[in-house]
């Protein structure tokens, strides 16, 4: 089936060989200069003085503290945005109400707010000179310059990712299946777990993967609210900056390479997710034709 389509296309609607190859070459050159070389340079710099120094940079206590903090922050921010993303997508995709496009726009907003501004707004709220600063001080509650502030900034920056991934997907799927399940007497939660979730699980996972990558890598907003206390409130990207400012370039790139590796793992996971989703679709299609 697939090969037949390909041959058909090649007869009527394919480009000459030289056009094809020059387009491929041009695309690869562009990606090479903008993606492959930067990625390559991160690892090249990290390994410039050998593996021993590379590993040393990663097991140094401050680096480990930074990795731990990043994991904790992500572990809190991710589920929050996951639950929100599903709720928002359910309300927006499955129902019609006034002001829907305004709501979508507001959900998208954090995506284009400058990270500098994203940090600043939390300082205006929770800083000692901010709205609730005095009250928080009095009750000895630390928000900014502590883990909660870093979590908040991270949640803000990664706010739209899951919702953005799910809304078009759930819109495309429509509501017929859910309505049928309702007629068959399913309860609300059964409906969600048995009908909706299986349909959106791959999109959901892709959203989570993107959200996760962005959460671990966020620099600008977190930098404003972190306080930079060594071994305590430095995340991985902030630790990279500190090492870089100490002229410790090898260590800086070594720690950065964790994030680059994370990017690669993310990409591999994403490819796997897409592959699984494709397989699922093919399986569904075959079952449909078999019936």
């Amino acid at each position: 089936m697939h090969s037949m389509q390909a041959t058909q296309r090649s007869v009527a609607t394919d480009e000459p060989r030289w056009v094809r190859w020059s387009l491929i070459a041009l695309a690869l050159a562009f990606l090479g200069f903008f993606l492959v070389l930067p990625l390559f340079s991160v690892f090249a710099e990290a390994l410039r003085k050998g593996w021993a120094l590379y590993v040393e940079a990663l097991i140094e206590p401050d680096a480990i503290a930074a990795i731990q903090l990043t994991l904790i922050v992500t572990a809190i921010a991710l589920p929050l945005n996951l639950v929100f993303g599903v709720a928002a997508a359910w309300a927006i995709a499955k129902f019609d109400f006034k002001g829907k496009s305004l709501l979508i726009t507001l959900i998208d907003l954090p995506f284009s707010v400058s990270p500098v501004v994203a940090g600043l707004i939390y300082v205006l709220l929770f800083g000692a000179q901010g709205w609730w600063g005095a009250w928080l001080m009095e009750h000895d509650i630390k928000i900014i310059f502590a883990v909660p502030g870093i979590v908040l900034a991270t949640v803000f920056v990664t706010f739209p990712f899951v919702a953005r991934e799910l809304i078009p997907l759930m819109e495309a799927q429509g509501t017929e299946e859910e309505q049928a399940a309702m007629v068959l007497g399913a309860s609300g939660w059964q409906l969600f777990w048995k009908v909706t979730l299986p349909n959106i699980k791959w999109g959901l996972l892709y959203g989570v993967i993107l959200c996760n990558a962005r959460a671990m890598g966020e620099f600008g907003a977190v930098s404003v609210v972190s306080g930079h206390i060594r071994g305590m409130t430095n995340t991985i990207p902030l630790h990279v900056e500190i090492l870089y400012n100490e002229y410790n370039f090898v260590a800086a790139f070594a720690v950065a390479s964790i994030l680059a590796l994370l990017a690669l793992v993310t990409l591999a996971a994403k490819s796997w997710v897409e592959w699984q989703a494709d397989r699922q679709r093919a399986l569904d299609a075959r079952m449909a034709t078999d019936q």
Partner: peptide, 18 residues
């Protein structure tokens, strides 16, 4: 194809330095 998403995942400061 997988690499296209790299800029999402790489921290911006690292991208800038690289």
């Amino acid at each position: 194809d997988a690499l296209v998403d790299l800029p999402f995942a790489l921290p911006t400061a690292v991208a800038g330095i690289a």
